[in-house]
Design a binder for these strands. Structure first.
Length: 654
RNA sequence: GCCCGAGUAGCUCAGUCGGUAGAGCAACUCAUUCGUAAUGAGUAGGUCAGGAGUUCAAUUCUCCUCUCGGGCUCCA
């Protein structure tokens, strides 16, 4: 009998019988590994354990303790769910069911337009568990396109996939199961099979640490003109502990939901009477926002910006010239007729800043001109897209337009990137991920030279800052390349906040010019940029980032003084007014409630500091300091020392 | 906008297989004056999102509208 030799990752070799599979290899190495193995990586490609090995390959076995198995587990669990759905709802037809971050989903359609609700999830999950108990094998088969069309004739979405991608006519990224004229599928039982590229775990018995999460709608192929399919999302993990930890993280994230915290902390509300996506800022929220905006203004003053204001509406001619009515009309609020003219609420501030530029003849000596405005804009967001402060219909941008010569683009961008990162760091973010979006392949405006100059300017600024970035080739707008900056928050979620966007279009549309050193007229370039982006959204992100525990410089109430008993009320007020005189935000919580209750209230209210004052303190001129997040009380601290500490916190933006 | 779900006191929620509602917290009153995460007693608070229908009777069943949530799509 012939034999074959395979190499293991540690360099050792194993001799197997001809036709042996990865599972055979695992068994030969040891029973423990045979039990733990889920898939194999053969010469860098992940395959089923049942795949036959050939002479000379390098094989690595992926076990159920290997993070790399997650992808396969999730993918197989998606199949498991599809089988359960088909069992419970015969006649269901399936589209795609890929693994995603933390889990998987599957899109499908039930016969007669039947729909599922969250209550159906439990039944599907139960059915999945019994399929796990049945320990069905995932059997791989490969057939021709014609055979596949026949096999899947009852599955219109599968047929469409086979037809549109057969022969590798188009990108086959999402349908790896079809390569050339071979289609692979997996069979689990007499009744269930699914077109799929694999690999899968050996049997359904290897699955189990999953939970179905929600049922949702999803357009077929993500196209809103195509049918709306049903989608079930689930999560799946290597073991019970990981699953539990993930569910716990979700709960924690829910606890810091900015809409919940905004309500609990009395910061912002969304009265029904205003309409979707429109918020009112309560005094405490407004105080925090004012502090944020003041800080922004201060930074912009230091950064050499000039401030501007502009109205909330303007005549249609402005939006015709800017091109917004051509390109962005769907996102704009509807027009108002007045005095024979048509007015639109502004979706962006740029045309107004252009008007300021145009109000004078500009010389190259004037450039760059940096106009800054906290400008409130209105955008018609689809009702289903509105989401608290993170996606609203009225919001304020920390918006600036920099008018610059094309020669100065690179220098300005380098400056800007400094400015952006400094600002984000001040708000407690230090994990950044940037994205450089380059010229789109289709139509775009501007000559090659300026695109190259601008794109290189952006790229070199990113390099100079050592900023981690990805390049989105062709992802730029038709009017210029851009940099977007994502930040990671305290629980690892990424938020896109800042954007630096070049524009070769608006200066043309508005016929902007400056007189160069050569005495000729030249076209400036515009840079649009927002650091926080939308103040509302930024506030929402901050609220979630800090879980409501705003650092002292932003906390609406920085200190609360608690007299132990009524006898200490006067001293408490003295301490409070001393601190107030030092510019701090301080309140006194009188001794009408027991001390323990007031301490608790102070903690629940997320105050940076709660001071307790009693007999000892009155005598010595001290306070007892409770610091947020610390269990121990710092007794006998003089008022001066405490004030210095708080001052330091505010200074350091802690 | 599309799919699914939800809307009960200021907040978090219970409840009614159709007979117009209840708890905890918060608020208010009284007592308690206390050195570190909930003192006790009491009072008040609801057109059960809005409208229509079925019914002797609707918060409950049906339909429509509004708002919110989770997705999809969108975010020149």
């Amino acid at each position: 009998m012939n034999q074959l030799t395979v190499r293991l990752p540690d360099g050792s070799e194993r001799v197997l019988e001809d036709g042996a599979t990865a599972a055979d290899l695992a068994a030969q190495i040891g029973p423990g590994l045979a039990k733990a193995a889920l898939t194999a990586v053969v010469d860098g490609t992940e395959v089923d354990l049942a795949a036959s090995l050939t002479d000379g390959v390098t094989v690595e076995l992926v076990t159920d303790r290997d993070e790399r198995a997650l992808h396969t587990i999730r993918h197989s669990t998606a199949h498991l769910m599809a089988q359960a759905i088909l069992d419970l709802h015969p006649g269901a037809t399936f589209a795609i069911g890929p693994p995603i971050e933390h889990g998987f989903y599957y899109d499908f359609e039930l016969p007669d337009g039947k729909t599922l609700s969250d209550e159906d999830l439990a039944a599907i999950e139960d059915r999945m568990r019994s399929l796990v108990d049945e320990d069905q094998p995932f059997e791989r088969h490969e057939i021709s396109v014609d055979e596949a069309l026949d096999l899947f004739s009852g599955e219109p979405y599968k047929v469409e996939m086979i037809k549109s991608f057969a022969g590798g006519a188009a990108s086959s990224d999402d349908v790896g199961e079809i390569s050339g004229d071979v289609v692979s599928y997996y069979r689990n039982s007499d009744t269930f099979l699914d077109m799929c590229t694999g690999p899968h775990v050996p049997t359904t018995g290897r699955l189990g640490h999953f939970k179905l999460q929600k049922v949702a709608g999803a357009y077929w192929r993500g196209d809103e003109k195509r049918p709306m399919l049903q989608r079930i999302y689930g999560t799946a993990w290597l073991n019970k502990k990981d699953l539990k930890a993930h569910l716990h993280r979700l709960e924690e994230a829910e606890k810091r939901d900015h809409r919940r915290l905004a309500n609990e902390m009395d910061l912002v509300s969304w009265p029904e009477e205003l309409g979707p996506g429109l918020a009112v800022w309560h005094p405490k929220g407004a105080l925090i926002r004012t502090l944020m905006e003041d800080f922004s203004r201060q930074r912009h003053t230091e950064g050499g910006y000039e401030f501007a204001f502009s109205p909330h509406i303007a005549k249609s001619v402005l939006w015709e010239t800017s091109g917004h009515l051509d390109f962005y009309a769907d996102g704009m609020y509807p027009p108002m007729e007045m005095d024979g003219a048509t007015y639109y609420p502004k979706p962006m501030n740029c045309p107004f800043h252009v008007m300021i530029y145009k109000s004078n003849q500009r010389s190259y000596r004037d450039l760059p001109i940096k106009i800054f405005e906290l400008g409130t804009v209105y955008r018609y967001e689809l009702s289903g897209a509105v989401h608290g402060l993170l996606r609203s219909r009225g919001f304020t941008q920390d918006d600036s337009h920099i008018f610059v010569t094309r020669e100065d683009i690179a220098e300005q961008i380098a400056d800007l990137l400094d400015f952006v990162l400094d600002m984000l760091r001040a708000f407690g973010f230090d994990d950044f991920q940037a994205k450089l979006s380059t010229r789109p392949e289709e139509k775009s405006v501007g000559d090659d030279e300026i695109w190259d100059m601008a794109t290189e300017g952006l790229r070199s600024a990113l390099d100079a800052h050592g900023l981690d970035y990805i390049v989105d080739e062709g992802g730029g707008a038709f009017y210029g390349p851009k940099i977007d900056v994502d930040v990671k928050d305290a629980i690892g979620r990424a938020w896109q906040l800042s954007t630096i966007q070049l524009d070769f279009n608006l200066p043309d549309r508005f016929d902007l010019e400056y007189i160069g050193a050569d005495g000729d007229r030249h076209r400036p370039v515009m840079i649009h940029r927002a650091l926080m982006g939308s103040i509302e959204r930024f506030f929402g992100v901050l609220l979630e980032h800090y879980a409501g525990n705003f650092p002292a410089w932003l906390a609406p109430e920085q200190v609360r003084v608690l007299p132990v008993a009524e006898a200490h009320q006067e001293y408490a007020e003295q301490v409070a007014s001393t601190l107030k005189a030092g510019g701090f935000r301080v309140d006194v919580d009188p001794a009408t409630d027991p001390l323990g209750k007031r301490v608790r209230r102070g903690k629940v209210d997320k105050l940076p500091y709660v001071l307790v004052v009693g007999d000892d303190d009155v005598a010595a001129g001290t306070v007892g300091v409770n610091t947020r997040g610390e269990k121990d009380v710092d007794r006998d601290v003089t008022v001066e020392d405490f004030a210095a500490r708080l001052h330091d916190d505010v200074d350091q933006k802690r």
